[in-house]
Write a protein that binds this DNA or RNA. Structure first.
Lengths: 321, 321
DNA sequence: TCATATAGGACAGATCGCGACCTACATGGC
DNA sequence: GCCATGTAGGTCGCGATCTGTCCTATATGA
């Protein structure tokens, strides 16, 4: 059996701890001679994992940053922490790494022991709704299934609730999972309608792979994100937000992030924000969090929402009596 | 050299993909005979990683969830996604797994290639301020250093800004990193003052380990979190929030999470929230996000903040003219 | 200066990995 | 019901390699 492989993994696990390990202690732990430990260290280095050694009387080994990612050896709690972090990241896609988050989540959840899975579910339930306004957040498990089916080129069956509430059964060949405007979309070939379709992930219910693998279909466009964006903006007109912020442009851009839109200075103390306004609640809370005065010019819906929110806050804070 | 170990790692990496791998394809990729692949699969199973095999004409191997976490083999983007997710999780400690998040982050950043580290920094800068109100978020790198020093029992030198703005140099022996009331605290033995002290992590600047390892000191109390909480509440009186929410108790508890405080029902449509109110801004936005009517009874500071926020929102949404 | 740490060469013996056969069994499509 | 294709596993022999026990060189801090 792979006695040495197991030992190398255990060694990697120990070296990923923030502390330093003397060779003698490693030998004791792994129940081999110190010479074998030195050879194992050599082997790890040959595999590309730079083991740093400090010489002298208080020396020891530790794993340093190299050119490639070594295998991460996590204990239970760390694995749970990562899963929870990735779930909240998937629920709030504002990055440029949304797809990688879901891939990593899929990878982790695939091998996560079931006892840990329960803890992740309980913790994520408490943390996910933190940012979500009225919008129901996407179920990360759904995202994992969608991404897996797309990567595996597996036919997928699911129930889809359209905008007017009607529910239909779909049989599709998922191609890619992309984000646009703070929402997740599945780009897939619809086998019943014989055409490419876009599905909002939060409207997909009970997805399960059929197990049937299908050959790769030629995609409708090179860039899936561009295709999704084009379809979205052609079908539903997306209004734009225009607002004046009483905040220097530099600060506003830094605190809003790139996803919020474009910021241009007006003078030293104010700037103008332009950007897509897909979810009013999110945008409103974001602007309020800036802590500065601001005025919304467009769209009227955002103005109305802010007035309603303001009235509610005023009522909530009214002097009791 | 460890030819087999490298192959086993590569095999694990492939099997962590959501797709299924036929043995023949694995053999081709890893440039060994199919028989060796079957033996490697056996080896992985003996190591405790359950490789699931579906038999038949369209069969293949894939890694399933077992009883222990297998080593995670991540590509660059996935590693960055995890690091970003953990950083935001560390910046918003409301879980019960805060410490594990930092441990995992330390483990990951220790081995993260430098080219990826830059990307993490750029992305995290754009996402972290999302939730932070007026409060400056903690630098996750500081947390990583603090946790590492505590785990390694290494003396740590840093600059500390006290509440009134004065800055002092400290030489300490970190013991544990804990959270209380949405903030990070370092429990450490202060070598200059010869006593245990508590430091707010966001007031710690430029921490760097001295490299000197010291023997474990007997902690002032069994539970570090309890000690920190006792110190905090004895020094600065923390006021409590009391509010009535027009929302069923079950829904409110689920959407607020356990960290927000205690929820008890009043009738079928309303409930009462009691809990510590350490950061007004955070609590106010949390309550507003619930989307329901509510009234704040205590503390008066929160009422005042809500009125100010409401006035600002109303001004921002005023009909333009 | 000395103790203690990493670094690495040489050697002998035992172990084990590998490929090349083989058979058994499960599954899905024809 | 047959056949193709996949996993599962036994056996055998050759060769590679892993391990422990020596050995010496070298860097570092008290």
């Amino acid at each position: 059996m792979g006695d040495m492989s197991a030992r190398l993994l255990a060694l990697l696990s120990l070296l990923q701890t923030p502390r330093e390990w003397p060779g003698s202690e490693l030998a004791e732990r792994l129940e081999v001679s110190p010479r074998t430990i030195r050879r194992d260290i050599d082997r790890l280095r040959e595999l590309g994992y730079p083991v740093q050694a400090t010489m002298g009387a208080v020396g020891g080994y530790r794993l340093a940053a190299g050119t490639a990612m070594p295998p991460l050896l996590l204990d239970d709690e760390e694995a749970v922490a990562i899963a929870v972090g990735l779930r909240t990241a998937a629920a709030h896609p504002v990055d440029g790494i949304e797809e990688a988050s879901v891939r990593a989540l899929a990878k982790l959840e695939q091998v996560l022991p079931s006892r840990l899975r329960h803890r992740v579910g309980a913790l994520a339930a408490a943390t996910v709704p933190m940012l979500a306004g009225a919008e129901p957040p996407v179920d990360p498990r759904t995202l994992v299934v969608l991404a897996g089916a797309a990567a595996n080129r597996e036919r997928l069956r699911f129930a889809y609730r359209s905008g007017d509430g009607t529910e239909t059964k779909r049989l599709t060949e998922p191609y890619r999972l992309v984000t646009a405007g703070r929402r997740w979309y599945l780009l897939a070939y619809d086998n019943d309608r014989d055409d490419w379709r876009i599905f909002r992930a939060d409207r997909i219910g009970a997805p399960h792979p059929t197990g049937v693998r299908v050959p790769a279909r030629v995609p409708p466009e090179q860039d899936p994100a561009a295709f999704v964006a084009a379809r979205l903006y052609s079908s539903a007109p997306v209004y734009e937000v225009v607002a004046t912020l009483r905040l220097p442009a530099g600060q506003a851009a830094g605190r809003l992030g790139a996803a919020a839109g474009h910021v241009e200075p007006i003078d030293d103390h104010s700037c103008r924000l332009r950007g897509p306004a897909d979810t009013l609640e999110w945008l409103a809370s974001r602007l309020l969090m800036l802590g500065c005065e601001f005025e919304v010019h467009e769209p009227p819906e955002l103005r109305a929402y802010l007035r309603a929110l303001g009235a509610r806050a005023t009522r909530a804070g009214a002097v009791s009596g």
